[in-house]
């Protein structure tokens, strides 16, 4: 480190006798990001959990020891064994296989929900931010209305309208979560609009679309990414909650929430039937939250340069 700051890097311009700025070595943005991101061990743990669950979800068919839908009524409530690592449930299905296949569902819900809500929210926020007063007023009123209905009621209704599969649930949850992005993007647009470079770009005759795509959107990207990762955990929890009260994914889909609820009937004698899928939910939500925390720190301009 010390070497880079040595006199060798200070070039003195003899003609004007002016010291040029210290020529610092170029910063590798990715390395810097990774350094801040993994600064806290707990974030590393969360990241590892997400990666592991991602692998489990993608390769569920290869990893799961049994068919998650295969019913075997001669083998119910089997204790954990080498053949069934977590035992079997009330109708003899392999619990571990169901949890592994549930991982795929949970990850799909988390990721696609967030992308749906981000796309809707960002678009509306940008339009409102650059639209006239009427557009702003209408968007803000509608957003207020949407926020005032308890989210769970919208989810239940939309889930019922769209059908209780992965597609329906994803849209139902995604549509309840978009107002957060509207507020974020809208506020950001209003701030960015004040900058001189926007004025310059307008003076140069750039179209609104170009200004939005070239100047406004890149400026909002960091907070949007942070909110997106933070919301993945929330989306997973929302889907699990709906499935738990029987208004989410339809059985026999191996959704973690449904499994937690199914196992509840045998809580006294076979608590793991309910607690194991529950633990999977906690792990994934924890992982998402920690990754979100890490990304927030790593994208925070205040943290820039502190850990070069």
């Amino acid at each position: 480190m010390a070497k880079e700051y040595s006199l060798k890097n200070i070039k003195i311009d003899h003609e004007y006798d002016v010291h040029q700025e210290l020529a610092l070595p170029p910063v590798n943005e990715f390395k810097r990001f990774a350094k801040v991101f993994f600064r806290r061990p707990i974030v590393g743990v969360g990241f590892a959990i997400v990666v592991l669950l991602l692998i489990a979800g993608i390769f569920a068919d290869q990893i799961a020891p049994h068919d998650p839908y295969l019913i075997n009524l001669f083998n119910t409530f089997d204790a954990p064994s080498a053949r069934y690592p977590l035992g079997t449930d009330a109708i003899g299905r392999c619990l571990l296989s169901r949890i592994i296949h549930g991982t795929r569902l949970a990850l799909l819900t988390g990721v696609s929900t967030v992308f749906i809500s981000a796309t809707i929210g960002i678009t509306i926020g940008l339009v409102a931010g650059f639209g006239g007063r009427v557009a702003q007023e209408v968007v803000m009123r509608l957003t207020d209305a949407w926020i005032s209905i308890p989210a769970i009621i919208i989810m239940m209704l939309l889930g019922a309208v769209l059908g209780r599969g992965i597609g329906g649930m994803t849209i139902a949850i995604g549509v309840t979560m978009f107002p957060a992005y509207i507020r974020l993007v809208f506020g950001q647009v209003l701030t960015v609009k004040q900058n001189d470079y926007i004025m310059a770009s307008m003076a140069m005759g750039d179209s609104k679309v170009r200004i939005v795509l070239r100047h406004v959107l890149p400026n909002c990207l960091a907070p949007i990414i942070v909110v997106m990762t933070m919301m993945m955990g929330g989306a997973v929890m929302a889907e699990a909650g709906l499935s738990f009260i029987g208004l989410g994914m339809d059985p026999p889909t191996p959704a973690w929430g449904t499994m937690t609820n199914d196992g509840r009937q045998w809580l006294a004698s076979y608590p793991h039937l309910s607690l194991a899928p529950g633990a999977a939910i906690v792990l994934l939500v924890f992982g998402f939250n920690m990754v979100g925390d890490g990304i927030r720190d790593a994208l925070d301009p205040k943290m820039r340069g502190t850990l070069n």
């Binding site: 955990g233 929890m237 699990a240 909650g241 738990f244 009260i245 929430g257 937690t260 609820n261 509840r264 809580l267 608590p271 309910s274 607690l275 529950g278 939910i281 906690v282 939500v285 924890f286 939250n289």
Partner: peptide
Amino acid sequence: TVPGFLMAVVLMY
């Protein structure tokens, strides 16, 4: 991190 319904199940247990 722990969703409410899971907390309920654990408490019940």
